[in-house]
């Protein structure tokens, strides 16, 4: 892996200067992280805990990581019931300057800005068609570019 050092440093940084609501879990495999994301106070998700799985490709950070919710998937307009997330920066909007912590912050802000708990309109159709595939294989039409 080309950028092992970057991942190690990212991990160090996130562990030494923790961000509220974001906890790095199992990182025994450096290419596959598990991160816990807590619903922020004063939002619809307050008190809820979600788990994210990051898979880093060999040319990370030039290519974006694959990020999905596992286990308890939040009910949100941009999160499919299979854990796939519709967020620009995870796909076309990715830049090598972004990092695990910026993604977590983006996701937290995405959850916090929700005004109602609903699944995406095309949820059933999407989940049926992408069974077993990586979200990065699909082509995303972003419902909302604000986050």
């Amino acid at each position: 892996m080309q950028y092992t050092k970057r991942l190690q440093k990212e991990l160090q940084k996130i562990q030494s200067t923790p961000i509220e609501g974001i906890t790095v879990g199992d990182v025994s495999n450096l290419q596959k992280w598990v991160v816990q994301l807590d619903g922020a106070k004063g939002t619809l998700y307050e008190g809820e805990h979600f788990t994210l799985q990051f898979c880093f490709p060999n040319n990370y950070p030039l290519e974006s990581p694959e990020v999905i919710f596992i286990g308890n998937v939040p009910i949100h307009e941009h999160v499919y019931s299979n854990g796939h997330i519709c967020l620009n920066v995870l796909y076309d909007g990715w830049s090598p300057v972004l990092s695990v912590s910026t993604i977590c912050l983006s996701l937290q802000s995405m959850l916090s800005s929700a005004t109602q708990k609903v699944r995406p309109r095309d949820n059933d159709n999407y989940v049926r068609n992408c069974f077993g595939k990586s979200p990065k294989q699909g082509r995303w039409l972003f419902h909302d570019d604000k986050v």
Binding site: Y3, R6, K9, E10, P61, P96
Partner: peptide, 11 residues
């Protein structure tokens, strides 16, 4: 005159 950290490779 300064050290800088690259925001991509973190070196």
């Amino acid at each position: 005159k300064k050290e800088m950290t690259c925001p991509v490779c973190y070196d």
